[in-house]
Structures are given as structure tokens and as C-alpha cells.
């Protein structure tokens, strides 16, 4: 079976500075894969490389066996990969409803249509309502996204990410800045909404990582030093030395 995401010997340099060096990562279909690593290890850069936000200097990225490195973000998104952002990245002046609906439009085949009334597309309406219900924001549907609370914006961020029905979902620190109760709620939400999908998640909260992930990769200085099940990672001496040593005992 081809992997959902296959990263092979990817390198990213900004000028002379190598941020990512010889990055290899394989995520199987249906797997929940967490990427952990200290600050500045290149976790977000890895996300940006896979999702097409930036192009790798060398190496290749494959999505379900197709080469996607060098494609632009919307082309990659149309092939079924969707990502969220570490810093909330929504459409601030539009309502919650419209935020989610915009993310539904391409996947339902309406593209750049200027001859259809957006309010009278039943499948768009139903899917948007379903997503809003899933992320528990139905009661806030007419509120501009910019006026939501932080936790609500994070939930909306997840809603926009999954709205297209992508089979590969990448979440960049979805619980960053949340309280314990909010984190618990968000994890339950992520677990439910990514059922049957491939999930790649960057996360700092180790309880979230070890509770959610099937496999974990540890990124240090732009290089993956270990990849395995949570149990293997917990035992790995290199990981202990480089990362877990000071944070989890």
C-alpha cells in the first residue's frame, strides 16, 4: 500500500542556512502521526513544505504516490490534503457560516461559478451545517469570525481544514494556547473528525501526543532522528537525550 505522505530526502535552505536537511518521513493511510521536537526544530517548516506553502530546495514529497513537491498550495489541496495553521488563520470579516462554506465550495465542485446563487446550493448548505454542528459552532453561525473567542477560532480553524473532506489532514498545534478543559475538548473533536482519515499533527502537549498518535516522529534541527510507535519513542535513547529528557520523564 502506498503511503499517504512520503517525504524523501527533502532539503530546505534559506540562503546558506539549511533549515531542513535530509528529511525522510512516511505516513501510512489512516495513521495518526505526530511530529514533535524542540522549538525551532523545523516542524512548521516541514508542514509548509508538505502543503506547498514553500517549495523544497531539493528532494521530493508524494501524496498517495503522486509527486506534489513544487505544486502550489491550492493544487495540493485539490488532491486531498488540507492543513490548519499554528496562528489562527480565518476570514475575519466573514461570518462563521461563510468561513466554513467557502471551504466547502471547491470540494463540492462549484469552483469559480458566478452564475449560481450560493445560498441555494443544497449540498453546500447541508455540508456546512454538518461541519458547524461537528465543531459545536452552530449557535455562533452569524458571528464574524474575528469576534469569536480564541478557543472558538481554533475550532473554526479545524472546521475550515476538514470542510473540504480531505483525506489527509495536517493540524499545526491545534491546542496551542488552550486551557486544559479546552484542550480535552479539542482532542476529542480532532479524534472524532479525523476518523478514517490520515492525520499529521504538530503538538507541544505531550499528553495530547501520546494519547492521540499511532506513530510519532521526532524532529531535531531539521532532521528526523526517530520515528516509531509512542512506546518505541518513549524508549529511544536518542530521543531521550535530545528532547524528552528534559520534558517528560
Amino acid at each position: 500500500m502506498t503511503a499517504a505522505i512520503e517525504v524523501r530526502a527533502v532539503e530546505k535552505r534559506f540562503g546558506n542556512v539549511g533549515i531542513i536537511r535530509d528529511l525522510n518521513l512516511s505516513v501510512a493511510r489512516g495513521e495518526r502521526h505526530a511530529i514533535i521536537g524542540p522549538n525551532g526544530a523545523g516542524k512548521s517548516t516541514t508542514f509548509n513544505l508538505i502543503s506547498g506553502h514553500i517549495a523544497p530546495t531539493s528532494g521530493e514529497v508524494k501524496l498517495n504516490g503522486d509527486l506534489i513537491s513544487g505544486l502550489r498550495p491550492f493544487e495540493i489541496n485539490r488532491r486531498g490534503l488540507s492543513r490548519s495553521f499554528q496562528v489562527t488563520n480565518v476570514f475575519a470579516r466573514m461570518t462563521v457560516w461563510e468561513n466554513v462554506r467557502c471551504a466547502v465550495l471547491w470540494a463540492t465542485g462549484h469552483r469559480y461559478a458566478f452564475w449560481k446563487n450560493v445560498d441555494s446550493l443544497p449540498e453546500v448548505r447541508e455540508r456546512t451545517a454538518q461541519i458547524l454542528d461537528d465543531i459545536h459552532l452552530t449557535h455562533r453561525r452569524d458571528v464574524p469570525a474575528g469576534l469569536l473567542t480564541y478557543a472558538e477560532q481554533r475550532e473554526l480553524e479545524i472546521g475550515i481544514t476538514i470542510a473540504s473532506g480531505a483525506t489527509v489532514v495536517m493540524l499545526d498545534e491545534p491546542t496551542a494556547g488552550m486551557s486544559n478543559a479546552e484542550t480535552e475538548r479539542a482532542v476529542a473533536l480532532i479524534r472524532r473528525l479525523t476518523e478514517g482519515k490520515t492525520l499529521v499533527i504538530v503538538e507541544h502537549d505531550m499528553s495530547v501526543v501520546f494519547g492521540l498518535a499511532d506513530r510519532i516522529s521526532v524532529l531535531v534541527y531539521g532532521h528526523i532522528i526517530a520515528s516509531g510507535t509512542p512506546e518505541e519513542i518513549r524508549r529511544d535513547p536518542k530521543v531521550k537525550e535530545a528532547y524528552l529528557g528534559e520534558e517528560a520523564h
Binding site: S51, R93, C102, W106
Partner: peptide, 18 residues
Amino acid sequence: RISNAVRDNPERVQFIGY
């Protein structure tokens, strides 16, 4: 509506297929 989304956040629009 997608024009509005481009107005608000052109970066994010790229990650919803547009």
C-alpha cells in the same frame, strides 16, 4: 463569496482549493 475570502485572507484561500 470567495472574493470576500480573498479580501480577508488570500493566504488561507490557497489552502481551501482556490
